[in-house]
Nucleic acid binder design. Structure first.
Length: 212
DNA sequence: AACTCGGGGCA
DNA sequence: TGCCCAGAGTT
């Protein structure tokens, strides 16, 4: 069992400083969570939340989306990047859910990954947040920050996923996912990270490397 | 492994 | 204005 020497300090730092994670937990159904997560690819939560708030007032279940004309859906979500692809995915997913899964979101990774527009990260978010399954969603931020902090040493997201699940206590997986994303977006950016502002320097391999 | 989708945020 | 991004699919 791997361990991380600064784990308790890290968790306390995030708990004290960063807002309670709510992005993925705010949706009332697994289906809404799935759609919102598909929409979130390469897009900020502000963009996505703005759209989903309106969208889910008009359309709530797979049936509402399955019969939708693509142009109509595109107009609803065109303030989000990649909106043509996403419209297509959402309508296709909705039809598959109706035909194959009785209108419900499937609860296994294998089934989720077969849905168009659903990759490893989206599947893991749905599994973790809607089905309480043991997964650790890894996106580019989680991957970058967990490597910089030495939580993992991984060249692929799948490796990082496994190592994070070994190092982080299970009850903190979803929180840590959001904390790392928040930290990655606001402070520990891919380029020009705000190290001067970051109190995690003592734990950070990236900072050490840049300053020796 | 590289390329594509894409509007909005930010320098 | 130009650069980049809370991914996934295609070639």
């Amino acid at each position: 069992m791997a361990s991380y020497p600064y784990l308790q300090e890290l968790i306390k730092y995030f708990e004290d400083r960063y807002p309670a994670p709510d992005t993925e937990l705010n949706f009332s159904t697994p289906f809404e969570l799935l759609i919102a997560t598909i929409l979130s690819a390469q897009s900020t939560d502000r963009q996505v939340n703005k759209v989903t708030k309106k969208l889910f007032k008009k359309y709530k279940n797979p049936g509402d989306f399955a019969s939708l004309d693509r142009k109509t859906l595109e107009r609803e979500i065109n303030s989000i990047g990649l909106y043509r692809n996403k419209s297509k995915y959402i309508i296709e997913v909705s039809n598959i859910l109706i035909k194959e899964y009785g209108g419900k979101v499937p609860g296994t990774r294998k089934e989720l990954l077969k849905l168009p527009g659903v990759g490893r990260k989206t599947a893991n978010v749905v599994l973790a947040c809607a089905f309480n399954k043991k997964t650790f969603p890894v996106d580019t931020h989680v991957f970058r920050i967990s490597n910089r902090l030495g939580l993992v040493s991984a060249k692929r997201t799948n490796e990082a996923e496994k190592q994070l699940m070994e190092v982080i206590p299970e009850e903190k997986w979803v929180d840590m996912h959001h904390w790392l994303i928040f930290h990655g977006r606001e402070v520990c950016k891919a380029r020009n990270p705000a190290c001067h502002f970051c109190e995690l320097k003592p734990f950070c391999n990236y900072y050490k490397k840049e300053n020796d």
